[in-house]
């Protein structure tokens, strides 16, 4: 898979503070790329470099095979975390202005705006001022401004904040649709469940360094501990525990179920899942047998608190 954005050894220093310490990332075309990291990790610094708001002190950024340069702003759409529009300017004029800044002609901008306003059901807002709109409504406008010029690369910083659940789903579907049309999406958020749901690649930045990068499934595989969550209805728990402790390490587990079974986390070690099953079956009815796959949340917490 070819990459749309290649970040090589980028360093950014603010005074004595190093915001990015030789960070390298490869963002594959057509992916939804989750950029994760605790507050102050350096995500915004990196996003600003991609947007050419600031320049890296060293290192290179390659956009679609070329060194990143001012003409590329036309192909990048950016939704910053701190949203803002001109409060006293009319919605339509404002969108036209911002679209023209991204290199669209006035006619083309107008056509696109009509398409998007229609699509999001906000046709009536053209002559409204931003200050007359609610926060969520303004967010929608901002989303439109961000995607209007059909960018190849979209950068969303916390795209769902400020949206109610209904609108959040609308925006999520739009993001997925844009990906299906060929756009690449960089997605920076602290909402791990949406990363889980949408991203196919992730990178984790912590304290100015990249700690993890890769396909979401690969990262999960890398972090899995070969642990199975087991539920068993057993009359002889003591015997069961004794049998298990010979080959496996066990911990009590917690999960929801309808039965009053015995719940365990069992780490396989070198054994296979079938061997575990075989050692379980003599002791009762197995009601639950699932491999524990680490969630993004687990990976995040484990990596950040472990470093």
């Amino acid at each position: 898979m070819s990459t749309i954005l290649e970040i090589n050894q980028v360093v950014k220093q603010y005074g004595d503070y190093k915001a990015l310490n030789a960070v390298s990332l490869n963002i594959p075309k057509g992916s939804i790329y989750g950029l994760l990291g605790p507050n102050g990790a350096g995500k915004t610094s990196l996003i600003r470099i991609i947007n050419q708001i600031t320049m890296p002190d060293s290192g290179t950024v390659i956009f679609d095979g070329e060194k990143l340069q001012p003409k590329h702003v036309q192909h990048i759409g950016y939704l910053p975390e701190e949203r803002g529009l001109y409060n006293t300017m009319k919605v339509g004029e404002q969108c036209l202005y911002l679209a023209q800044m991204k290199g669209l002609s006035k006619a083309e901008a107008k056509k696109q705006l009509e398409y998007w306003f229609d699509r999001l059901g906000i046709q009536g807002w053209w002559n409204k001022k931003i200050q007359e709109l609610s926060k969520g409504m303004a967010q929608k406008i901002q989303f439109v401004v961000c995607v209007l010029h059909k960018p190849k690369l979209l950068i969303f910083d916390e795209p769902f904040s400020g949206f109610d659940p209904v609108n959040a789903i609308i925006i999520k579907d739009e993001i997925l649709a844009l990906r299906d049309q060929g756009a690449t999406i960089i997605f920076s958020t602290h909402r791990m469940e949406s990363v889980e749901e949408m991203c196919d690649h992730i990178a984790l930045i912590h304290k100015s360094n990249k700690l993890i990068e890769g396909k979401l499934n690969d990262v999960k595989r890398q972090f899995k501990t070969n642990t199975f969550e087991v539920g068993i209805l057993s009359d002889k728990p003591e015997a069961l525990m004794q049998a298990l402790s010979q080959n496996f390490s066990t911990n009590p587990a917690q999960f929801k179920s309808l039965n009053n079974e015995f719940k365990l986390n069992i780490q396989l070690g070198n054994a296979s899942p079938n061997e575990l099953l075989n050692s379980l079956t003599p002791f009762g009815q197995i009601t639950h047998f699932v491999e524990k796959i680490p969630s993004v949340n687990d990976i995040f917490i484990q990596t950040v608190s472990g470093s």
Partner: peptide, 10 residues
């Protein structure tokens, strides 16, 4: 109003 961040990305 933080719009400056959008503008200076263009």
């Amino acid at each position: 109003s933080r719009i400056v961040e959008i503008i200076i990305s263009s």
